[in-house]
Every structure is written in structure tokens, then in C-alpha cells.
Design a protein around this nucleic acid. Structure first.
Lengths: 107, 107
DNA sequence: TCATTATATCAATATATCTTGATATTGTTA
DNA sequence: TAACAATATCAAGATATATTGATATAATGA
């Protein structure tokens, strides 16, 4: 798909906007932390994270079995502007649950 | 729908991106001109123009039975940036057919 | 190597969006 | 008012996208 269309399609879904806002707010997160914090099913998360990554908003870093997703940097003008808009949205962010650090992870 | 989601959803469709690019390039156009130039069915055009209008990209001005659509101005930062992206897209623009002015309109 | 955990992908269904043709609305002119 | 042209809306089917549960892959440690 064309680059711009891929970017805006990625943004046109509530779940993905929430993910971007969450990761932008709390910083790099692994899938199991997102799963615990947002109470989302794992396959659903994986799908949306992939779409956001392929649209140029996220990057992944593997650390052992964990995959850490973070906001890709630097973002181009359009994506930065989009992220700025998302920062202003009235979203109820659930608190962060860092299972990957407290060793409670086993979902 | 939430404002930002409405904007990006409006942008995430090839037909609407083409419409924006067309109107941005050739200036204010009525539906029958778009119909002739883009060889699109009228109900389809009407639908997409409405979505773009409600997303804040277009405005309409009625002149008699004609409805002239143009880029809304001023656009906010995000929408301007989006339009700038669209201006850079490699789109094959069909030539403008100004039926509404030459009196050939009767579709 | 086997077992375990985290993540990714797949297949089926559910949901949303687009396209089309038909009909309704609005404005103009006779 | 009647007839017509331009545009908008509606309803049906077609297409795309999202969600879920099941399965596959990858990394780790015993």
C-alpha cells in the first residue's frame, strides 16, 4: 500500500490510537505489559502493533523472548503532527502494569 | 466520532485522497465537474465529498443547483500537513472538465 | 533435547466501509 | 404549478478490516 495511506489507515482505529498514546506516555513496553495494562488479547495486540510498526510509528527491539515496542524516532513531520494530536485527545489511560520487570509475567 | 479519528478515517481512502488532490490542484469544483473529470458515479462522489466536508477538509457553497466544493481555509496544522503529504503523492490526475461553465452539463 | 514462556500468524466469524442503482430533495425555469 | 437538472440520501450487496481462539515460531533454561 502507498505510504501515506498506510499511515492514515494505521491511525484510523481506536485500538491503535490508544496503543500509540499508551506507549508515548509510558515509554517502551513489551507485549505482555500492554496485555496486562490494557486487558487485551495477545493476538489482537500483536496485529495492531505490527500495523503501527509497518506504518512507521513504532519500532521493536527484541530482548530475549520479550519484544519491546517504542515510538520510532525521529518521526517525520506528518507523523509528529499526528502524535501531537493524539497527545491532546481525551483518552482515559489505564495505569501501567510492568509485569516484565516485577517477574509476575506468565500470561 | 472523535475529531481526530474522523479526520484520519476520511484520509484513509484512495477515492477521497484523489478528490482532495484534484480539488487542491484545480480549485473549487462542482459535483458534475468532478463526475465528468473523474468518471465517477454521482452518489459515490456525493458520499465521499460529504465525508471530507464533515472531516473538516472541504467546504461547500451552493450556487443555484450547483454545489461547489473547495479546500476549507484555514486548515489547522494537522490537516495542512496531511494535504502537504497528498501534494507529494505520485497521483495521475485526469484533466479538468469544466462542464458547469461550458454549459454542457446534463448528466 | 525437552519444557516453558513470549510473541507471531492463521482461519473463521463478526463488524464496518464502499459501491451501485433507485429514490428523494432542492433549485430553476417555463 | 409542472418539468427538469443537480445533488443528496437510502437500501442492498460486495469488499475490507477487526476480533477471537487455535496453532506456530522463537528464545530460554533445565
Amino acid at each position: 500500500m502507498e505510504v501515506f495511506l498506510k499511515s492514515v489507515s494505521a491511525l484510523s482505529d481506536e485500538t491503535r490510537v490508544l496503543l500509540l498514546r499508551f506507549i508515548d506516555t509510558y515509554g517502551e513496553s513489551c507485549v505482555c505489559d500492554l496485555q496486562a495494562s490494557l486487558s487485551m488479547i495477545q493476538s489482537r495486540l500483536s496485529r495492531h502493533l505490527k500495523i503501527l510498526k509497518e506504518a512507521g510509528f513504532l519500532r521493536v527491539e527484541r530482548k530475549g523472548t520479550w519484544a519491546y515496542y517504542s515510538i520510532r524516532s525521529p518521526l517525520d513531520r506528518f507523523r509528529s503532527e499526528a502524535l501531537a494530536e493524539i497527545r491532546c485527545m481525551p483518552i482515559e489511560l489505564p495505569p501501567l502494569k510492568k509485569l516484565s520487570e516485577t517477574g509476575e509475567c506468565k500470561l
